[in-house]
Design a protein around this nucleic acid. Structure first.
Length: 455
DNA sequence: GCGATCAGCC
DNA sequence: GTTTCTGCTGATCGCG
């Protein structure tokens, strides 16, 4: 800190062109380097820095510089269709409301829905009745609400994705060049800005259309490789729970298996509804479970949610021991850590404020899982990057989306590249359970099909 | 300029 | 003491 102060002072008092400025700068810089290096070594973080994060910089820089090809004509067609849909919906909404107003304003929308039309207020924000999708879905029997939900979806796609993305296509490369930030998240994940290419729609059919505009150049295809259930697999590994580990070794549908365990059924008796509840429980476990959160997620009473959680921990006892241990370790040491020793300090585990303390406890449970997944995919990126180079292939990494890599590959390299990527990702860091990677390819980011072993 | 709200992804 | 289940980015509104 004193070095930083000193540096700040020199920066403001000295002209960078003044002789001696660079000498001062370098002297301070060297001291800071030595200090940070010692701190990393003292905290057992040196190899994380030197062997993972530092070499990853090069791979990320190349990904950013290379960019991903985007077809502006496709974006523009989608944009015009969205525009037409928005105009229709706007007319419908005005007619149903009996007046014109700004549909984009939650405040003005609230006046129409809750005052003029007298719909019930199911939830409030700090500033007034909530108009979130969660609330509107409960009220969607009213035609105006259904139209507003659709309007919101279309407006989001148009403003965030079609129009903004088009502006970010480089005139020189015809590509979009995102920035991957390596130092913003608390867990070790990357983030992506200008634009954020880690939140391109995929969930709905309409949203997925955006992905059609992300294309491979002539003679190439996009290659996608994603880890299947990496966080739950890490939970099995980190907790040592043999029931969960065996579930993954069996290769069966993990959510259905969880349903069978939790509800005491045979695997073939599990209904879609039970599987879907089990999926919510699995997500909850990864996020740092609370009965409150689970109840909200799948419309249960808190008591029912607590029963599900109790039943889960009865079937996966080592998971319970592991998660409790994380909170304990966080309290004792002040931090929790990932596979690579990356730390997250959680002082609020000792807070007297229940909300803060609970949040910190959920963070203590989530960070080692989410952060270790981030460690693994970063290491996999490095291995893929180096293996492609060593093999003399032209295949390039383009994007990372937390548990997925997107690459661009010449058609005549597809077979080699697909096998190389799958192997590097699956064998990156052997765990007690296998890591499974799905590989897909296609002319654009939407229309991809599974790459089969025979190919 | 900034906080609040909402919505996109994992 | 009575929680809005992790981690992010970004568009928009509306106040100051």
């Amino acid at each position: 800190e004193s070095l930083c102060d000193h540096f700040h002072e020199s920066q403001t008092t000295m002209d960078p062109k003044e002789p001696g400025y660079q000498a001062v700068y370098l002297r301070i810089y060297k001291k800071v380097v030595a200090k940070v290096k010692k701190e990393l070594k003292d905290n057992d973080l040196w190899s994380l820095y030197e062997e993972l994060e530092l070499p990853l910089v090069t791979a990320l820089a190349e990904m950013e510089a290379h960019g991903i090809l985007v077809d502006p004509k496709k974006l523009s067609v989608i944009s015009q269709e969205l525009e037409a849909t928005m105009e229709k919906l706007t007319e419908t909404i005005y007619a149903e409301a009996g007046e014109e107003f700004n549909i984009n304003s939650p405040k003005q929308l609230g006046v129409i829905l809750f005052e003029k039309l007298g719909l019930p207020v199911l939830k409030r924000t700090k500033t007034g009745p909530s108009t979130s999708a969660e609330v509107l879905e409960e009220l969607s029997d009213h035609p105006i609400v259904a139209s507003v939900l659709e309007y919101r979806q279309v407006a989001k796609l148009k403003s965030t994705y079609t129009d903004s993305l088009a502006e970010l296509i480089s005139p020189e490369t015809k590509r979009i060049h995102t920035t991957f930030n390596q130092t913003v998240t608390a867990t070790g994940r990357l983030s992506s800005t200008h634009p954020n290419l880690q939140n391109i729609p995929v969930r709905t059919k309409e949203g997925r259309r955006i992905r059609e505009a992300f294309v491979a150049p002539e003679g190439h295809v996009l290659l996608m490789a994603d880890y299947s259930q990496i966080e739950l697999r890490l939970l099995a590994h980190l907790s040592g729970d043999q029931v969960l580990a065996e579930a993954f070794r069996s290769g069966q549908d993990i959510h259905a298996q969880t349903a069978a365990e939790v509800f005491g059924l045979d695997l073939d008796e599990v209904t879609d509804e039970e599987r879907s509840a089990a999926k919510a429980i699995n997500f909850g476990i990864i996020y740092g479970i609370s009965s409150f959160g689970l109840a909200k997620g799948i419309n249960l009473t808190r008591a029912q949610a607590q029963e599900y959680i109790d039943s889960y921990f009865l079937r996966y006892p080592m998971v319970k021991v592991y998660l409790d241990g994380l909170v304990e370790q966080g309290k004792k040491e002040g931090y929790v850590q990932t596979l690579s020793k990356r730390r997250r300090y959680l002082p609020n585990l000792k807070s007297r404020n229940y909300a803060l303390r609970s949040f910190a406890a959920r963070t203590a449970m989530n960070t080692p899982i989410q952060g270790s997944a981030a460690d693994i995919i970063k290491l996999a990126m490095l291995k893929v990057y180096r293996a492609l180079k060593d093999a003399g292939l032209k295949t390039r990494l383009l994007l990372q989306v937390h548990d997925e890599l997107v690459l661009e590959t010449p058609l005549d390299e597809l077979h080699l590249a697909a096998h190389l990527v799958k192997k590097q990702m699956e064998e990156v860091y052997p765990l007690d359970v296998p890591l499974k990677v799905g590989v897909f390819y296609g002319p654009n980011w939407r229309d991809v099909k599974s790459f089969d072993y025979e190919e």
